[in-house]
Design a protein around this nucleic acid. Sequence first.
DNA 1: ACATACTATTTAGTAATACTAAATAATGGA
DNA 2: TCCATTATTTAGTATTACTAAATAGTATGT
Lengths: 307, 307
Amino acid sequence: MERAPVHGIEVFLTIVQEGSLRAAANVLGVGAPAVSLQLKALEERLGVGLIIRSTRSIELTEAGRVLFEAAGPAYRDMIYAVKKTREVGASLNGTLRLSLSRGAYVAALAPVLERFQADNPGINLELSWNEELVDINREGFHAGIRLGDVLSPDMVAVRLTGPLATVFSASPGYLDRAGRPEHPRDLLEHNCIRYKLPTANRIADWVFCEDGQDKVIDPPARLVFDHVLGVIQAAREGHGIGWSMRATAEEHLASGELEAVLDPYARALPPFYLYYPEQNKRVECLRLLIDCLVTHRDRQRRDGPKS
Amino acid sequence: MERAPVHGIEVFLTIVQEGSLRAAANVLGVGAPAVSLQLKALEERLGVGLIIRSTRSIELTEAGRVLFEAAGPAYRDMIYAVKKTREVGASLNGTLRLSLSRGAYVAALAPVLERFQADNPGINLELSWNEELVDINREGFHAGIRLGDVLSPDMVAVRLTGPLATVFSASPGYLDRAGRPEHPRDLLEHNCIRYKLPTANRIADWVFCEDGQDKVIDPPARLVFDHVLGVIQAAREGHGIGWSMRATAEEHLASGELEAVLDPYARALPPFYLYYPEQNKRVECLRLLIDCLVTHRDRQRRDGPKS
DNA sequence: ACATACTATTTAGTAATACTAAATAATGGA
DNA sequence: TCCATTATTTAGTATTACTAAATAGTATGT
């Protein structure tokens, strides 16, 4: 790298400001010879003398004056830039931008939101609620929350929940009409309301669990949504059987609008994870959020797992 | 010096501008690992990630964007400052400011002035014509020309002339009236026109030479000037005997207005020197002037010493 | 999907640089 | 003149920067 052009200018500026090499050495926290040698090296690199020094005083040469007047303000600007950059990482104040799906919000973030906001009055949360898997960095997000099966391997991932229970469900009216499936293969004879991944642009596999093995089934996609709430909605309206996270359907199961079927075969989905690029690991706001989420996750497990 | 805060920023900025570590390495003239390590070290120092890098592309984190936007312009300013500073030393154009006495001008500079100006059309000369010995650097001069006996030891000195012949002289009318001294001690009985050093604020010794020895004499200072031309003027007007450089009085000696006395005792003064602070030794304009002056000095000696 | 071609990183070793302590030199003031 | 202070030189040491070689990761084309 052959010595950056600006190398040593800090020493020069400090000498001028302090008025002597010794004072500059004290300010910089080094011995006097270090300053002397650095200054000499700088003059050597620039090919011109900068400071006329006697043991009792210093004076700038013409070149020294030019450098001091031009580089001084620029150097201060750089110091300021560095300071601001540090603050991005160190600040306990600021805005944390997250990208997360509705399900992720409900299952992972919502339970701790109130406490987090109360504990961290300086941190604003900016939540982008979308189902697509976005490039969180390019879009200006600090982190995202997604299901574990869609994570990039180059992201740091923090598990936020246990595995997520799922449910096959339909309205009682539909089931009365079309019959209640006893085994997943019966689904092939049913109206199945499928979910299409918005980004991958393909219909999500239906996976069930039998004898401890995951098995894929592909019932006819008579009705497809790219949003989970659409699936639930259609199921409630009696259009067929949907497969969703249990938490998402829970309220309708409780009210009797939906009825669960095939429960022994309902496979758990991988947990939600918060993920972020390695380079954001020192953003203090993010660390605080993660602490909060993980604390909640661990308390959940102790008090009794929900999902 | 514990690593200047701005250290490594050049590497960071280059990476961002070039779009990859490898390209930055090429630009900086180092291997790829060097860049990688420097970037990592910078992130470590700032306590925050700056660039998210995969093998095919890079992206800035929020902190990286802050740093790039704030430090980029400041860094360019510093580069510019360094460039301007270099030019002070390297430029063959510009203004050279000299402090010199009238005698120095006549004896040392004037003979080469025309040639120097012709050879160096880019260099402007700014001459401060004063008898006082000024602090050339504090006053913004690059160099000065003075007699050898008043030089500070911390300046680089370049001899420009041989020893300077002096002359005791008076008007023929005065000498007819007061008599022609045969030996310096006769001066004690004469009106002597003395010279007072403007800076030192003391009357200059009269020194003569006898048997190879310098001897000081202190005739009554009936009439004192702080400018050599005053001494000459008064001598021409018949007010007494003056002591001056022979070159300064030459034209009046030739015209018969002045008549030399005590020539065997007239001591030569030390030569004129150009002097400048060590730190200006690389100012290219000054080197050119010195070359020109020294060339002339040596040609003078070969062709026949004048003084 | 697989190989290919690039790019980044790690590691270990080496070259270069920065710094210190101690001695020396220089300077302004009592 | 000496004293107090400051700068510089020198020699040695510690730190840092860099490279080469090996490894790992990723987008592109086939």
